[in-house]
């Protein structure tokens, strides 16, 4: 539980791991746009090909990737079934009241399933290959233009950074308090729902108090290190490298590709 891996980060040294986090976030956004622009199977095939390349470059175990899909499986099946049964089309194979199964319905739900699976894999690729710290750095950097409208980007970034730092500590603390109350006979596992909620009070109260106490002390420690002045700089600057350029070109090519495929081949349904 003490790991950086409380997110999903899978430590490895790969092309994708080393990409600038900002670029990875932007790539994910571009990718989402691409799979929604892709209007036929050729476009989706292109998207899938790019994703397969990315996964291969990331050196993630295939099992990890499938596990991400498994997490969203219910959503995928649900979407597929609903669309399969409610999408009307010309070539009807079976119908019953408002429910029908048509060729177009099958195609359409297959199309949606592919979109969803690609989306899930691509976003988990981001969290698998980027540490939470890099992710927050990336978000901060991407939000920098908001400074123009006086949005406190630095403060937001600091809040995210402290939250990341404190999550493992508070998780350990929760475990410790839970054990201490269990040792005093507290029962968290049985009883009706109301009782169970009440059973958590002996955990929640100490946890909240501890969080406040920590916040207080952290505030002092930050002040002691000169926090609160007007100017503040950031030591670590994210830098673009050739890898990032390559990935950016890939993303641009992908979008161009799906747009072309859409224009020349039209929609499937």
């Amino acid at each position: 539980m003490k790991d950086v891996a409380f997110g999903q980060y899978y430590p490895a040294d790969s092309f994708v791991h080393r990409l600038d986090p900002r670029l990875k976030i932007l790539f994910l956004i571009a990718y989402i746009v691409a799979i929604f622009v892709a209007s036929n199977f050729y476009g989706l095939a292109l998207c899938a090909a790019v994703l397969i390349l990315a996964v291969a470059l990331s050196r993630l175990p295939v099992g990890k990737v499938f596990r991400a899909v498994r997490g969203a499986l219910i959503l995928v099946i649900f979407t597929a079934v609903i669309n399969l049964l409610f999408h009307s089309g010309k070539t009807v194979y079976w119908s019953c009241g408002i429910l029908c199964i048509s060729k177009e319905g099958i195609l359409f739900s297959a199309y949606l399933v592919i979109r969803l699976v690609l989306l899930v894999i691509c976003s988990s690729l981001l969290t698998y290959t980027t540490t939470p710290v890099a992710l927050t750095d990336g978000i901060e950097s991407l939000l920098t233009p908001l400074k123009w409208i006086r949005f406190p980007v630095h403060a937001l970034a600091l809040i995210m950074s402290i939250a990341l730092r404190m999550i493992p500590t508070l998780m350990e603390e929760t475990e410790r308090i839970k054990n201490a109350q269990k040792a005093r006979g507290a029962n968290f596992e049985s009883g009706n729902p109301l009782r169970r909620v009440k059973a958590f009070i002996p955990i929640l109260v100490p946890l909240l108090l501890s969080a406040f106490r920590r916040a207080d002390e952290l505030g002092d420690a930050m002040e002691a290190r000169c926090y609160g002045g007007k100017k503040r700089v950031k030591y670590k600057k994210l830098r673009f490298s050739w890898r990032d350029l390559l990935a950016a070109i890939l993303a641009a090519a992908l979008i161009a590709g799906v747009v072309l495929l859409r224009v020349y081949l039209g929609e499937i349904v």
């Binding site: 410790r176 054990n179 201490a180 109350q181 005093r184 006979g185 002996p202 100490p206």
Partner: peptide, 24 residues
């Protein structure tokens, strides 16, 4: 446990001390 004072939660001392008694 270590630093057991961080497990106190009740409104009064007597309620907190009696917590285990009630549970058992």
């Amino acid at each position: 446990f270590q630093y057991p004072e961080y497990q106190l939660f009740a409104e009064t001392v007597k309620e907190d001390v009696a917590f285990g008694l009630k549970n058992f």
